[in-house]
Design a binder for these strands. Structure first.
Length: 428
RNA sequence: GGAGAGUUGGCCGAGUGGUCGAAGGCGCACGCCUGGAAAGUGUGUAUACCUCUAAAGGGUAUCGAGGGUUCGAAUCCCUCACUCUCCGCCA
């Protein structure tokens, strides 16, 4: 949720920024928001005045009774009654105005950062770095990861479909161990970089889902347990960021850097065919996430730091990858600036997104009411950032494909201490 | 799942209809005292919104959340959430 203050003070910049998302009606929407906000203020003033009179008169009534002047008190009561009816009217209008204001604000996505290129979709994303040091051309007869998974009995999608449904894989044997090793490696790297490791709840309440912006706009994409009114997390960003909901942090304690592994649950029914084959797209997948709460003035340095961290991970895994700066049209609703990391799937011959690193500026913290006290002693909204470090399935897919040999699949050097085996071999 | 007890400011804790945004204590900040510190002592110490503004000030709301009774609610009533204790169940 954008701060009204920003819209008021930097209206032109906001309109220009939102235009990069292809949002042409932004100026009208902003006008509506400012009008509603003005209306809200006016109502507040009038209502407060009435409430003041009620409070004052109530005190007087008490005093009159003590003095035994019941008749006068009765008169005063009548007046209060009238005011109260008036207040009730104001209250109704106020509530309507407030909720309309909020709905309108929620309909507005975050204002893109100055560096975000205009554009409609992923084709317009800006490729800012390509790391092809580890790019290889696979020999004839090489296989895509879904064939390798089956051949080496690492991941069983059919079995998952039997137990749960499609998109819920079963990892087995060396496949399970490999997955766990990668998770462990990613967590260790994040902790070494200064993050506090967290194991959060994997199910959250509606307040949390709202806090990070999954509600109301991504309602249909989350699994929901009606009986208890809880949501399965689509990413650990949700519980991690909501740890700070409503908090006023001490500037000296910032930045707060957190990391967590969690399974992620997503209902999203995507496209069909090769796009969703194998591990490309799943309803349940594993991810290690990083969340940072930062002072506003430092948040873009933090973003660079996070990008650098992710870059290092991919280099250590010896994968070919590239970094994209998302264009306005592809940018997530709540993000001001997002870098996507894509690894190259050498067998599928296409890029797969494995990480998304974003700065939300105050968009999330405004809804979370996550603040700090500045040097003047005033509370001010903080910036929130998060990024995947990394999402597992596509990393696994890319690693299996690029490291396949005739009779085995090699394990990246840095992962060997975690797997305890040097390569994946066929089991009889 | 059953029974009972609770939820007050950063923390502890008083407060059963008006003078309560809330005693007292702790903590914290600043000052005095001191060569310096401790002790002592004084002052201050919530959040949001509105108004005003150079600053200060003023108003409104908030005592778990929401609703109700009342001229007036931290205090009475209802609903919900959470915490604790005991019992049950369980990894």
């Amino acid at each position: 949720m954008i701060e009204v203050r920003i819209l008021r003070e930097n209206r032109q910049l906001a309109v220009e920024g939102l235009l990069k998302r292809g949002l042409k009606s932004a100026d009208q929407t902003i006008q509506k928001i400012l009008d509603l906000d003005d209306q809200r203020k006016q109502l507040q003033t009038q209502m407060d005045e009435l409430l003041r009179r009620v409070n004052e008169t109530s005190d007087e009534i008490g005093a009159l009774y003590k003095q035994g002047r019941g008749a006068e008190a009765g008169e005063a009561k009548k007046m209060v009654g009238e005011w109260k009816a008036e207040i009730a009217g104001f209250q109704t209008t106020m509530n309507e105005t407030q909720s309309l204001l909020e709905t309108t604000l929620l309909s507005l996505p975050n204002i893109p950062h100055a560096s975000v290129p205009a554009g409609q979709n992923e084709a317009d994303n800006e490729i800012i770095e390509v790391h092809d040091d580890y790019m290889v051309a696979l020999p004839e007869g090489s296989k895509p990861h879904w064939e390798l998974m089956e051949e080496y009995d690492l991941v069983d999608l059919a079995l998952g479909a039997k137990i749960t449904g499609s998109g819920f894989p079963v990892y087995k044997g060396q496949g399970a161990r490999f997955q766990r090793a990668l998770i462990q490696f990613f967590l260790d790297e994040a902790v070494a970089a200064g993050c506090l490791e967290i194991i959060p709840p994997f199910v959250v309440n509606a307040d949390s889902a709202r806090g990070t912006g999954q509600l109301p706009d991504k309602d249909g994409q989350m699994y929901y347990t009606e009986r208890d009114d809880l949501y399965l997390i689509p990413t650990s960003e949700v519980p991690l960021t909501n740890m700070f909901r409503g908090d006023i942090l001490d500037a000296a304690d910032l930045p707060r850097r957190l990391t967590a592994y969690s399974p992620c649950f997503r209902r999203e029914a995507g496209s069909y065919g090769a796009d969703v084959k194998g591990l490309n797209r799943l309803h349940q997948f594993d991810k290690v996430e990083m969340v940072v709460i930062s002072l506003p003035e430092n948040s873009y340095d933090v973003l660079d730091w996070m990008v650098n961290h992710t870059k290092t991970l991919l280099q250590k895994l010896e994968l070919p990858f590239r970094i994209l700066r998302l264009c306005g049209g592809d940018l997530g609703f709540t993000s001001a600036l997002t870098y996507d990391f894509e690894v190259f799937s050498v067998a599928q011959k296409r890029w797969l997104e494995v990480s998304s690193v974003s700065n939300f500026e105050t968009y999330q913290s405004n809804r979370l009411k996550l603040r700090y006290r500045n040097s003047e002693g005033r509370t001010q909204l903080l910036h929130t950032l998060n990024g995947s470090v990394l999402a597992l399935p596509r990393i696994v897919a890319a690693l299996l494909e690029i490291n396949q040999k005739e009779d085995r699949i090699d394990i990246p050097e840095v992962i060997k201490p975690y797997t305890g085996f040097e390569c994946i071999e066929k089991v009889d």
